[in-house]
Every structure is written in structure tokens, then in C-alpha cells.
Nucleic acid binder design. Sequence first.
DNA 1: TCAACGAGTAACGTTGTACT
DNA 2: AGTACAACGTTACTCGTTGA
Length: 415
Amino acid sequence: MEKKSSFIHQIEEFRQSNVLIADSISIGNQAIVRYTGEFWTAKQRQANALHEISYRACFKPQLPRFFIEHLTQPGDKVYDPFSGRGTTALEAALMGRVPVANDINPLSAMMAAPRLLPPMVEEVKQRLSEIDLSPSNSTEIDLTMFYHTDTFRELLNLRSYLIGKDGNGSLDSTDRWIRMVATNRLTGHSTNFFSGYTFPPNQAVSANRQRLINQKREQVPPYKNVKEIIVKKTKDLLKGIAEKERSTLFGIAAQAQFVTGPADSTKAISADSVALTITSPPFLDIVQYSDDNWLRCWFNGIDADAVASGITMSKKVEDWCIVMQGVFDELFRITKPGGYVAFEVGEVKNGKIKLDEAVVPLGIGAGFICEVIVINAQEFTKTANIWGVSNNSKGTNTNRIVVFRKNTATKLGGS
DNA sequence: TCAACGAGTAACGTTGTACT
DNA sequence: AGTACAACGTTACTCGTTGA
């Protein structure tokens, strides 16, 4: 006889001391308990600064922290099949858990893995001083709507250096750090980006649109010093990394696993090995992941169109569910008996579609037990101000997490 | 043709705190 | 008193796709 999940007990205690809403929803023939409230706060600058690289559609580090704290022990494997910038992987590593991460876009591991091996600022300065960014460079692509010609020349040289060393296998952890920082400085709306004024840094607009933005603002991209900007951002990222954090991360990094491929077929990850999965899949077709990352892919020699063809962009919930069922089946394979999945989605289409309700049967269909739905609702910046969408009135304003558990008893007739 | 829809972020400025 | 910096509230701003 299996004992009652201690997680629900913890949530219930939390609820009683914080006066949260508890109700339940019927899905199929089951009543799923649902708690709504402010389980964690998610303001800016409340987590480790090492997280602060922009990537489209990332959740706040407080989200994985909450579930890692409650559901794992140090040394446990914590997995994210839609890893993105690697929020789950990094937060897990900072907490002494072993990260396993997957993403269809190779950009993801390039952004996540180097931050498990944070260098000293001096190492980065030294390496940059050894790279010659001055030679004039023939270009196969015009990006002068984004960059001053001298900045563009520096970027082309850095790109050749990185792609060259990657190609002959001589890229080291300092180079990978520089590649991660540079990729994140390619476009942005303020001074410490290589580009002139453009969109906020998680989305690169098309070249044509950038020309129009330049016209409208009567701007020509100003000169930006590539090496100086990389050093500046390196310092910012390393603010929260004292020796204690550095040694935790270095100890963990050697055990971490980064996989690049579809989330429903991750053969490199062992069966029955993962203690906790924390993830957030694409929400239907809301975010244009490969378009938003086209410049980053170019900088790293990645074919963005090829990546795009593998990304789930279903418009309809039914189509999305078919793809996600495959993901859940794979999660069931790799989760260890007694392990958990915390699957985060949001409400979309002006609140009409609550994806958490669609997720419940998928996990059950894969063999999991649905434990509870945790909804973090608060006044916080999720969709605030961008596109003129005001916070808590439109767009996705809550984190809706469906928590599943794999029974410790062996499933009968399992293949 | 037009309206609906939508997974932010970095810098600035003010206030607070620590140290000389 | 003066300096440095940490903390944090506030501020600025755009595109692309779809379906009626």
C-alpha cells in the first residue's frame, strides 16, 4: 500500500497559512484538486543573475525552484524536454541537482550549458584580447540595418572564430561562454547590445522591418564595441556567483546532460532515471520560436528553417494534444518510479482555452497519476506592457502547472 | 482590409546602506 | 560629509499572423 503523497500535504499546509483558493475540476471520471494563489513571487531581479539572458517564452526561475525544493533531493536528476534558455537546468544545478535538458533547437544547449561553467571575468578578458576582430571580412549577408559597419565587421570575425573552432573541435569553455554572451547581445532595445535600437532582445525582427524601424526613428545603427559589451554582460551575469556557487556548479556540470532533438524521442536519456521533470511546452502557435531566433541561428551557423520544421505549431488544441501525448509517453519512460512531472502551461485565446485541462488526460493516458493542479496567480510581469497588452487583463497571466506522479508499483503488462 | 491577439527586458532614477 | 553601490519601482517601445 502506497502512502499518501507528501506533496499534496505540503501544498495543503501552504494553503492554510496563505489563504489560497482550493477547488476541484472534473476531467473524465476524476476530480482533480486545484490550488490557486501566490505560491512564489516572480518579480524582476529576484533570482540569480546568471539566469538573465533573454530567450523567448521562459518561465521565472522561482517556478522550477518551488518544485525542486518540494519534490527532489540533492543529486536527483531534474529534466526539461523544452529547455529553451535552460532555466530549469540552471536552477536545478544551483540547488545541487543534476540537470538533464533537451530542446529541438541546438541554440538551447549553446545558451544553457556554458552557464554551468561560469568563468572568471579575467579569463574572458584574456581570451577576447587574443581574438583579432579587425580584418575586413567579405559578407554573404547584409545586416547593416542592425549594425554599424565596424560592429558588423567585428561580429563577422567573432563568428568565424567561433564556428571555426567549433568545427575543428577546439572550442573550450571560455569560448562557449563568449559565444553564449555574444549570441544574447545580437539585438536589443538599449545601449548594451551590438545592434542599434530594435525589438527587445528575445525577438529579432526581419531585416525589412528593421529598415522601417530605422526610417521611422531616423536612426543609423551607432558603433558598438563588441568586446566591451561582452565583458560588461559577463560581469552582470556573474554578480551572483561567489566561490560557493561556482564550486556547486562545477561539481554538477560534469554530470549534466544536454540533448538536442524532439521531446517525444529522447533515446539518450535512460529509462526510469529522472526524479522530476519541470517543463513548459509551446502553447499552440502563439510564439514564433524560429523566426524570433533567426539572427541567433545565423550567428551560430544553425539552419533556422530546418529547426522550425521540427517545432510543434498546432493551432488547434486537438492537434496539440496528439503531439503532447507522444511527449508524455516518453516522459513516462524516463521518469523513475515515484518520480514527478510538473507540466506548466497557460491560458490562451483571451482566457478561453485553459491548457492545463487538456494536459490532465494526456499524463493519465501515459500511465501517470494526476496529483494536483497548482496555479500561480499574482500581480506580476508576464505579458505586461509589451504589444500594449496590460498585465492581468489579456494574454497569459498565470502559471498553470499540472503535477503528475509515476506510481512506485510496476505497471502490469508494460512493454 | 482590418481588427484581434500575443511567453518582456534593460536602463534610469530615487532611496537605502555600508564604509571611509 | 562624501562616496560607492545595492535595491527596486518605473519607464520606454516595436512586429507578425490569422481570420472575419
